[in-house]
Design a protein around this nucleic acid. Structure first.
Length: 302
DNA sequence: GTTCTAGAAC
DNA sequence: GTTCTAGAAC
């Protein structure tokens, strides 16, 4: 079975019972239409993947008579899409291969809404954990890779420290930073879909070429000649600018939560940290304004 | 996608 | 010496 590696997410998304998946797959949580897993090769301190499940069931009544979107006669845009759901109320798996396929699907809005809803929970989970373990929260992005390697649609939900031993190559960094167009952020994809776009604006080739671009810090705009230098910068930035805002005793390498649970002494510190965190986000560098837009109100979905 | 390896380039 | 690039993986 050659090339089994790129089918791993198809296997996970197809699980009838997510609890029965191998423990190696690390499910965070799931609902009727999505499964969220830990990224096996996390490129940041927090890195999850939200997958639409196979089969992806449409809401009751969606397949007939719902006037918000015309039912598909046949969606033959690329020859790979199967016939529309005329006899079953599920989204064909071919529509869920990647973000480009999904954008041509008549079910794009419904799938994106389910993925967004699950990813909202992931954001809550991450922020809770950040607060508990570090006493501070920092930027998290939600994005699809424009040209993914793994088959089956997966939304990356990752903290933008990008500090991880698994971040080993330049292209890893460039595929996640909000300042490079390779990462197609959920809010932007929603806007494109709302505007009626059925494809990403650039060619596959153009997106791949972005991964050969210069190494520029999304924190400071500083340019680096070698990847190891950028990696050192990411690590020191996270330690000095983010973790320094949290409680010192809550660093995960030290015994944590002992003092935090003891009394209310942390309340002042918590207030201070929140203020400083906002300052941090607004002064984090020239690209800060673009690096944390997950908080804007969701587009009307349905 | 990852690991491993070899040789080029710096 | 370190980093980058490219190819193989049964």
């Amino acid at each position: 079975m050659p090339q089994a590696w790129n089918q791993a997410l198809v296997r996970i998304a197809s699980a009838k019972d997510p609890n029965a998946l191998p423990t190696d797959d690390r499910v965070l949580f799931y609902d009727d239409r999505t499964i969220t897993i830990y990224d096996k090769f996390a490129k940041a301190q927090y890195h999850f993947l939200v997958l639409p499940r196979i089969p992806f069931k449409l809401a009751d009544g969606r397949e007939k008579g719902n006037p918000t979107q015309a039912p598909p006669a046949l969606s033959a845009t690329n020859g790979k899409l199967t016939l529309g759901a005329t006899s079953s109320n599920v989204v064909p798996a071919s529509h869920l291969r990647n973000i480009s396929a999904l954008m041509t699907s008549p079910y794009v809005t419904e799938v994106l809404a389910a993925v967004r809803e699950a990813s909202d929970r992931v954001l809550d989970h991450i922020r809770d954990d950040m607060q508990r373990n570090y006493g501070v929260t920092w930027s998290i992005d939600r994005a699809f890779h424009a040209v993914p390697s793994m088959e089956h649609l997966h939304l990356h939900v990752a903290s933008m420290d990008l500090v991880s031993a698994r971040l080993k190559h330049k292209k890893h960094y460039l595929s996640f930073v909000p300042t490079v167009d390779f990462a197609q952020r959920l809010d932007d994809v929603d806007k494109m879909v709302t505007a009626g776009k059925q494809a990403l604006p650039k060619s596959e080739r153009a997106y791949e070429n972005l991964l050969n671009g210069p190494l520029i810090s999304h924190h400071t705009g500083q340019r680096f000649k070698f990847f190891p230098e950028l990696k050192a910068h990411l690590e020191s930035h996270w330690r000095d600018t983010v973790l320094a805002q949290g409680r010192p005793e809550s660093h995960p390498t030290s015994t944590r939560s002992k003092r935090a649970a003891s009394n209310g002494a942390g309340e002042h510190a918590a207030h201070r940290r929140k203020v400083e965190c906002h300052q941090l986000e607004s002064t984090a560098g020239p690209n800060a304004a673009e690096s944390d837009t997950d908080e804007e109100p969701a587009l009307p979905l349905r």
